[in-house]
Amino acid sequence: MIDLHSHLLPNIDDGSKSLRASLRMANEAVENGIEAALMTPHHMNGHYVNHKADVIQLTSQFQEHLDKENIPLQVFPSQEVRINGGLIEALDNDDILFADDSNRYLLLEFPDDDVPTYSEDMIFKIMQRGISIQIAHPERNTKIMADPDILYSLIEKGAIAQVTASSYVGSFGKKVQKFAESIIAHNLAHVFVSDAHDLPNRDYEMREALNKLNSVMGKAYQQQFEKNAEAIIDGNNVEKLIPEPIVKRRFFNGF
Rank of each mutant, 00 (worst) to 15 (best):
Ala165His: 00
Glu181Met: 02
Leu73Pro: 04
Ser119Tyr: 11
Thr164Arg: 01
Asp94Gly: 07
Arg104Gly: 03
Ile88His: 11
Asn187Ile: 13
Phe179Leu: 00
Ser78Asp: 13
Ala159Cys: 15
Asp114Phe: 07
Val81Ser: 04
Gly158Asp: 08
Ile184Met: 11
Tyr118Asp: 11
Leu108Arg: 06
Ile144Ala: 03
Asp149Ala: 08
Gln177Ile: 01
Ala99Tyr: 10
Phe76Met: 12
Asp113Lys: 06
Ile184Tyr: 09
Thr142Arg: 02
Ile184Pro: 04
Asp95Asn: 14
Arg82Ser: 08
Asp112Gly: 01
His190Pro: 10
Phe179Asn: 02
Val169Ser: 06
Phe98Arg: 13
Pro148Asn: 07
Lys157Asn: 13
Val81Trp: 11
Ser153Pro: 05
Val75Ala: 09
Lys174Met: 11
Asp94Pro: 10
Asn70Trp: 08
Ser132Ala: 04
Met122Ser: 06
Glu156Asn: 15
Ile135Met: 09
Met127Asp: 08
Ala161Asn: 00
Pro72Lys: 10
Asp112Asn: 02
Glu120Asp: 12
Met127Gly: 09
Ala90Ile: 00
Pro72Leu: 10
Phe172Ile: 08
Arg140Trp: 02
Glu69Leu: 14
Ser171Gln: 15
His190Ile: 02
Leu154Glu: 01
Phe76Ala: 01
Asp149Cys: 09
Glu89Val: 08
Leu107Tyr: 03
Arg129Pro: 00
Gln177Leu: 07
Val75Arg: 12
Gln128Val: 12
Pro77Ser: 03
Pro138Ile: 08
Phe110Ala: 07
Ser182Ile: 12
Ile71Thr: 14
Ser182Lys: 04
Asp114Lys: 14
Ser167Gly: 15
Pro138Asn: 01
Asp101Met: 12
Glu80Phe: 06
Leu108Ala: 04
Ile144Gln: 01
Ile135Gln: 00
Met145Asp: 03
Val115Ala: 03
Gly173Tyr: 03
Tyr105Arg: 11
Ala185Asp: 03
Lys68Arg: 10
Val115Arg: 07
Thr142Met: 09
Pro111Gly: 07
Thr142Trp: 13
Ala165Thr: 00
Phe76Ile: 11
Ala161Ser: 15
Gly173Glu: 01
Ala136Phe: 02
Gln128Gly: 05
Gln134Thr: 09
Asp92Cys: 00
Asp147Glu: 13
Ile155Thr: 13
Ile88Phe: 15
Met122Lys: 05
Pro148Trp: 01
Asp100Glu: 09
Gln162Glu: 15
Ile183Thr: 08
Leu73Met: 07
Ser182Arg: 05
Pro148Gly: 04
Leu106His: 05
Ala90Met: 07
Asp147Ile: 07
Pro138Phe: 02
Asn93Ile: 11
Pro77Asp: 05
Glu89Leu: 13
Glu89Gly: 10
Leu87Ile: 15
Pro138Lys: 05
Ser167Asn: 12
Ile131His: 06
Ile83Phe: 07
Asp149Gly: 08
Asp92His: 11
Arg140Leu: 03
Ile83Pro: 00
Ile160Lys: 09
Ala159Glu: 06
Asn93Phe: 08
Asp95Gly: 12
Gln162Asp: 04
Asn141Gly: 14
Ile71Trp: 00
Gln79Met: 04
Leu73Val: 08
Asp149Glu: 10
Phe98Gln: 12
Ile123Asp: 02
Lys68Phe: 05
Pro148Glu: 04
Phe110Ser: 10
Arg129Ile: 06
Ile155Phe: 06
Ala136Arg: 05
Phe172Leu: 03
Leu106Cys: 12
Lys125Gln: 11
Pro77Arg: 13
Asn103Arg: 11
Glu120Ala: 14
Lys125Thr: 06
Tyr105Cys: 14
Leu154Thr: 03
Glu109Asp: 02
Pro148Asp: 11
Leu107Ile: 12
Ile183Tyr: 04
